Amino acid sequence: MMDFQQMMKQASMVQQKLQEAQAKMHESVVTGASGGGMVKLELKGTGDMTALSIDPSLMAPGEGEVLADLIRAAYADARRKLDDINTQLMRDAAASMGPGAVLPDLPKFF
């Protein structure tokens, strides 16, 4: 059985790993695309959209509904990628905790 000092040291290391994982999550940037790349956007790890690119052909009158659908699809694509990155970062952090470790809930930015 570990003594108290060893447990505190291990808990401190775990906390540091989780903080590092959260920092990496915030620094992540992903690109989502839809319509064969006609709509692209970037999301930061915090969920903030930092860029949006729309093909000029989608700006034609009557294309508003199509454009809205493509923007939502690009956002969903980026969000899935961001969720995958965040999940992997937390798994990597948890790997240092040993078998049976329980992860905290992932932060929800959306």
Rank of each mutant, 00 (worst) to 15 (best):
M1N: 04
D3Q: 00
F4C: 01
F4W: 05
K9Y: 00
K9A: 12
A11I: 00
S12Y: 01
S12N: 13
V14F: 10
V14C: 05
Q15A: 14
Q15F: 02
K17C: 06
K17F: 07
Q19Y: 01
E20Y: 04
Q22G: 02
Q22T: 07
Q22S: 03
Q22H: 12
Q22D: 07
A23L: 02
A23N: 09
A23H: 09
K24C: 01
K24L: 14
K24S: 14
M25V: 06
S28Y: 05
V30H: 06
T31D: 02
T31C: 01
G32N: 07
S34T: 05
G36I: 00
G36M: 00
G37P: 04
M38I: 07
M38F: 07
M38T: 11
M38E: 10
K40C: 04
K40Q: 14
E42S: 13
L43C: 11
L43S: 12
T46Q: 01
T46V: 05
G47K: 01
M49Y: 03
A51W: 01
L52N: 03
S53A: 10
S53C: 03
S53R: 11
I54P: 12
D55H: 12
S57E: 14
L58G: 12
A60F: 04
P61R: 14
P61T: 11
G62Y: 08
G62C: 08
G64T: 13
E65Q: 14
V66L: 15
L67S: 09
A68M: 09
D69R: 12
D69H: 08
I71T: 08
R72F: 13
R72D: 14
R72V: 15
Y75F: 15
A78W: 08
R80E: 15
K81T: 09
K81P: 06
K81V: 07
L82C: 06
I85K: 13
N86E: 14
N86I: 10
T87S: 13
M90Q: 15
R91F: 09
D92I: 07
A94W: 05
A94Q: 10
M97L: 11
M97S: 11
G98E: 06
G98M: 03
P99M: 06
P99F: 07
G100A: 12
A101H: 09
V102D: 02
L103A: 15
D105F: 06
D105T: 09
D105V: 08
L106T: 04
P107H: 00
P107L: 01
F109M: 09
